[in-house]
Structure formats: structure tokens, C-alpha cells
Design a protein around this nucleic acid. Sequence first.
DNA 1: TTTCTTCTTTGCGCTAGCGCAATTTATCAC
DNA 2: GTGATAAATTGCGCTAGCGCAAAGAAGAAA
Lengths: 232, 232
Amino acid sequence: MYPSLTDLRRVNVFQQASDADLESLRQHSLVRAIEEKSFFFLQGDEAAYLYVLTSGRAKIVQSNVNGQQVTLRIIYPWQVFGALGAVSNQVALYPASAQALENSVGLAIESAFFRKLMASDSHLAFGMMNLMTAYIQEIQERYRELALERVEQRVASALIRLAGQAGVKSETEAGIELVFSRQDVAELTGATLYTISRLLSDWERKSIIQSGRERIRILRPHELVTIASTSA
Amino acid sequence: MYPSLTDLRRVNVFQQASDADLESLRQHSLVRAIEEKSFFFLQGDEAAYLYVLTSGRAKIVQSNVNGQQVTLRIIYPWQVFGALGAVSNQVALYPASAQALENSVGLAIESAFFRKLMASDSHLAFGMMNLMTAYIQEIQERYRELALERVEQRVASALIRLAGQAGVKSETEAGIELVFSRQDVAELTGATLYTISRLLSDWERKSIIQSGRERIRILRPHELVTIASTSA
DNA sequence: TTTCTTCTTTGCGCTAGCGCAATTTATCAC
DNA sequence: GTGATAAATTGCGCTAGCGCAAAGAAGAAA
């Protein structure tokens, strides 16, 4: 049920923490199973917990008043999400929702407790700062792409990024398999479902990828790198 | 020359730090005067210093390979910038450049030293985390706008945001005065100079703003709020 | 197997915003 | 004041990508 200390060490943020800290952290946590399409938390909820995904896959999405949405991050096992509330001692609200992409399990850690742990163990604070700086760099890069690059380049970049994040497990000699719908890719890249469908069809004709229902297999990653950095 | 301890307390990140820490921080700092259009640091430089702006105004810009650029943040006095390198003990590179918008002065603090201070004083670490979470929330919101909203709405949001950041000093009964060129606004909103010019001309006809060379005076802020949240 | 649902594809028309080019306006240096 | 430089404006044509609609696939359920 609860992850072991060994498992918790797989979490980057916790890497340098003491056993005692990790143990007490478990005491202040809940295991929550969330089924596909349900939410760990909703945008605007009070950020009382931060999460470690222990199995499954999730996405962090932000909606505007019309209900249109963008995907900010994809979460894989042993990643931390929903942590903004652990920083301020004021009441904070989640700025985005966390939705399970498949049946998932997360460890919910009390934000207030985690804040105390960070105050007493600087390793935890540095772990969190490293998480934040890495995320800032990614979102800044994506922001720049959204402002300056065409859809084709943004999608190529997004697939490369996803391939890197999804990790080795999905990489075989037959290519790198990504499990995302056209709609998912659209929300990740600031494009529409239709444009993504047309683009992937085109790439499939050129044998850069091979695609199916909610599946994209990257056959020639280097081609995507080229497209991503093609000017104008 | 060097800012006083009282001045340094105006920096959010330093608010809770001890006098001794602030004093030693000054010892490990340099005062750097940068003239308009010159750079505090360039994208790709080794992030050996983090900065506190003590006077003037600066922008953080990220460029792509074609030299097109987006503006990520505007920096006002007593704000910290270029701090990513203080987090990791690996060598880090600035992911963006910091360019002075007018003749400016900054206090350059050694990243490695600041990292040690954060490790010994959790208040500093929390100050930094608060800075990062606030920035993350802003950039996420702008990312969402860029993906989902039209130029008109993004510009309205940007002006509102700038008005809030520029602060009270520029707010009179005659409106809120912002000192930015059309090009600046374009780089802040992911639009072109031409589109911004046309849009501002239109708003001026409607008496929402009044504008001049490198100047925008917001006459009816509420109109902008309405535009920013107008659907489709 | 058949039916339902959900995802995907593709044709088609449309428009927001780009970007060139030429002009006008404001500011600065001398 | 005069000329030089940089910023801003505006007309015009163009196209990337949107978004509707309708049809086609691929699973899931019955």
C-alpha cells in the first residue's frame, strides 16, 4: 500500500533526505487511487496536499473561463506535483488541475507538514528548488516556442520532450512509443486537434512516425529534431 | 554605493534573513552599473551571480536560433533575477539574457555563496521558493493565454499586469503611465510590432488608453479588464 | 456479432494576424 | 534650428492554422 523508503528515494526531491524524515513523511500521507479521467485535485482547490505519483500517469491542466485548456506538465511515477502550496505559509490554491491519464495512485502529503520538514532539512528545500528550477526552464522554453515557432516545430519539440520524459522503457528498436491522443498533443502544444491530425498524417506518410489510436511511435527521432530547429 | 541593510530588506527574498547574513552577503557582492540596452548577463553564460536590481529597469529575454526573442519578465528595483544558478551545485547556465531597459544598477551576488547561505538559513531558501512559485504562476498563466487567447486579450492582460507591477508611483488621476515601446509589448505578448501598433491606435480612438513614443497611459483600466476576459 | 462510443481523418471555407513597404512623427545630437 | 536617428503608423496582400461538418476506423460493451 504505502511505498517503501527505498521507493521514496526514487523521488528526486527526497534523494538527500534522512530515513527519519521519510518515515515521518509517510505518517503524514495518504494513499489515493484515482481512476482514469478523474482528478487528484482541481484548479482553485485549497492546496492542502502535495503529491507523489506512485503508479499510472497524470497531466497538469489549466483552464480558462471558457473551459478551453492547456496541458502544463505530464507526470510520471515518482514525480512530485501540486507542491506550490507547501511553500507559502498562507493558504494557497492550486493554479491548475491534476487529471489521471490512466488509473493511477498517488501519495498525498500534507503541505503544512512538508513545509516544516523543508524548514528543518535544507536538503528537502534544495530538492524542491531543483524541481522548480527545472520546471521553470521547461515552461520558459515552451513559452518561447509558443510565441515564436510554428505548430510543426512545436509538435516536433513536444514529441522529443515526451520521448525523453517517458524514458527508456518505451524505447525499442521499433521506435519510441508514446501513448497520447491527438487531443492530448493539441493541448500540449497550443494547437487544435485537426491540425495535429493533419500533421501526424503527413509525418506518417514520410515514415517519420507511425501512429494509431492514442499512440504515436517515433521511428526517426532525428528527423523530428531537424524539424524542431528548422527556421521559419 | 553598496545598498544599506535597510535597502536590502526591501528585497522580498531577504525579508526574514538575519543582519549578519545580509552583511556577509554584501561582502560577497559587486555593484554593477549597466547602461541602457546593455546586458547584466547573456543567455548561455555561466550563472555565477544572481542579481538584485537597485535602480533602473531590466527585462529578461529568451532568444531562439533565429534571433527572435520573447520577454519573460520585467525587473524593477529590489527584485531578484538570474537566481537559477544558485540552486544547483552543478555548473548552471543562464537560460535567458538580462538587458537593461534604462541605465541601471544591480548588486551581483556570488551564486555559490548564496547557495551556502540558503543551506544555513531556511528563511532565505523559503524566500527563494516563494519567488519561484510566484513566477511559475505568472508564466503558467501567460502560457495559457498565449495558447488560448487572441492578441487583443493577451495585450490587455499584459498591460494590466504591467500596471500592477510598475506600482503606485506611476498611478495618478490622469491614469497609469507605462514606459514601454510597441516592440516591448510585442515581445511580451507574442505578437508583432505592427499588430500592437494597430491595436493601441484602436484603443486610443476608444479612449481606453493614451499613447506616445515609448509610453502608454492607461485611462480606463476596467475596460482592459473587460477586454482581457471577453470570450472568443 | 452487432451496437455504441470514442477517436481520427479530411474537405472546405474563413480570418486573425503576419510582414513588407512607404510614410509620418518624435527625440536627440550638434 | 537643422539634420539624423529611431519609433510609430497604416495600406495591402497573404497564409498558417482554425473550426465546422461529415465520414471513417478502432475498441468496448452488450
